[in-house]
Design a protein around this nucleic acid. Structure first.
Length: 108
DNA sequence: GACATGACCCGCG
DNA sequence: CCGCGGGCCATGT
């Protein structure tokens, strides 16, 4: 196993994710659109690989339906609960359906 | 170079 | 409302 540097595509994703202000979240779709990628899934792939942990707030990235999505490689489980708590600490409160209010969604 | 996987999205029934 | 299938892009084997 040989460690490799992030590809240009990954760097693009990290750069955009890093721009997300505290107390705000963004969707994979908008993010993909911003970096010029037609596949939102590819963006998620890069975030899951996220080597720049707290520097790149991947926990501020949610799905298009404003659900949390995944975290630390898991779509559901303990890590997701942790993600929710982090957002709440930053000022983001989820509604009864477990979704993030549109007001917190940051538009590029 | 081909095949398989994935923190996704959209349309249809 | 819920479930199923197809699509799109990048990465790893």
């Amino acid at each position: 196993m040989k460690s490799r540097e992030p590809t240009e595509f990954e760097q693009r994703v990290y750069a955009a994710t890093r721009r997300i202000p505290k107390g705000c979240v963004t969707t994979y779709k908008k993010l993909a659109r911003e970096i010029g990628c037609g596949s939102n899934q590819a963006v998620g792939q890069a975030l899951k690989r996220n080597p720049f942990a707290p520097e790149v707030p991947c926990h501020r990235v949610v799905k298009t339906d404003r659900t949390l999505g995944g975290f630390h490689g898991q779509t559901q489980g303990k890590e997701i609960t942790r993600k929710t708590r982090m957002l709440r600490e930053e000022g983001v409160v989820l509604d009864g359906a477990g979704r993030v209010p549109t007001e917190h969604v940051f538009a590029y």
